[in-house]
Design a protein around this nucleic acid. Sequence first.
DNA 1: TAAATTGGCGCC
DNA 2: AAAGGGCGCCAATTTA
Length: 575
Amino acid sequence: MVGGIVGGMGDGERWLVAEDERGGATVVPVGEDGRPAGHVRREPDVVAAVRNHPEVTRWVWRSTADVYPRLLAAAASVQRCYDIEAAENLLLGHEGRHGEPRSAAAAHARLHRRPVPPDPPPRAAEPGSQDSLFEPSPAAHLPLEALLEVYADQLRRHDATAHPGRMRLLTAAESAGMLVAAEMNHAGLPWRADVHKDVLRELLGERYGGSGEPRRLAELADEISAAFGHRVRPDLPAEVIKAFARAGIRIKSTRKWELEEIDHPAVKPLLQYKTLYRIWTAHGWSWLQDWVRDGRFRPEYTPGGTVSGRWTTNGGGALQIPKVIRRAVVADPGWRLVVADADQMEPRVLAAISRDRGLMDVAGSEEDLYTRLSDRAFAGDREHAKLALLGAVYGQTSGDGLKNLAALRRRFPLAVAYVDDAAKAGEEGRLVRTWLGRTSPPAVGAGDDDGEAGIPQDQPLPERTSPEGEFTPGYASSDARARGRFTRNFVVQGSAADWALLLLAALRRATAGMRAELVFFQHDEVIVHCPEEEAAAVVAAVREAGELAGRIAFGETPVRFPFTVAVVECYADAK
DNA sequence: TAAATTGGCGCC
DNA sequence: AAAGGGCGCCAATTTA
């Protein structure tokens, strides 16, 4: 049953579908080894193929992003899929071949040792235009026989990994993520343009003529200039630094935390200007014009868009919606937004993957993890406990977090060793993997010894061990240390992304029989738009999906995966 | 002149 | 108290 949310063995019929250049489709049932298990049939198109074969629970196809939007537009959907190009990407990474073309055509060419076609360049975001989503891509369609070969080969390559079961799960989860992403793109996030405009007017004031510069920004710029006694353009860091220098204050940058330290009348309006300027340029009137249509904001989600497996969006900045702008996210009349935030996801994931007994015990409760941590190791000081843990995960190099790291290491040795080992691997130029097997890319300049005078490869460095047994990266170059921080974080952030994919898959299945729709996802937070009367069921489904995802990803574990859930009409009213 | 990089800051 | 990891976006600046 556990495999059911993303597809396990023997859980329904599995068919492969291939499209040709003219939109026609051929389908064939396939067995668990990827071989044909029946006759090849022709269908007018992929929509007909799916409609005519409701007995199929899992479709194997070249690219979900290419096929599924057209199915959704025709009001068709599928239970599960196997995305060959997503699988190719994950397998190439696992094999240490990041960067090789990942199209199905490339995979087929490699299989036959023929010249490998490069991937088409990534399509740029096209604000407002949804049309491109529904056109079959011009990418090379592979005939059914070729797709079958690639598929069978991929199944063998899963078996050749260190943990085949996990790798198969990763591919299944990524494929499920592709379905969810396409469905979210299709549904869109409810967005009230009128409310958005009200917020903008409130914060920024009216716009002036041609450039449309808001009144409030002009006023603040004047205040800043007055405070300096001469004209200063606040959006030019160089000019601001020079102005402070003339006033006898030396700053290295105009970063917020640095400005906050300064006692000067320009600081307050400057900080205000920065906040408002950003809202104007990133989520202002032109953003609204570009990205909101018919009451919905439709970012293009890209699952696995980051190397760690987190999603990105292609345009619209959906993963950086400023808090004040969330006022515009409002449920339809009679509907609600179920906003669910996973509590302390990354430390819980660290507990599950490191199997550190102490940290598993801390994470084996729905209570606030940092409070429990501080009760055990930090004399009740929650803030110190949190900083120490985040410092360990991010690779903090100085400050209080580092001091507290020693305490963390004593009480939770396996957890700290897990991220230290990942850091060491990175410094030595080795690859690391998430729990399910997503693999870090190689360091820039490592690997391909093309003799170019580029970045020299970092030398493997002797490990230095302190009396407490702590790993100190004392001899590593600054590049190697940066690399270590990256791999240190990668294993936790990426394994958390593994879990989040399974969460989405479980939640998608749980809501399949409802009118509820998943409409937003941001690393550890999901929003479901549903009729008011379904809200309670959705809340329960989220909580169950979190625990189920934990068990599927990490096996039997005492670690709990609780959520903070709010049922609201407006996103801004959550938490 | 266009592409790439930088600085800054929004989110996690 | 100090400034760690991952992104995307914008405008300005530098590079090709």
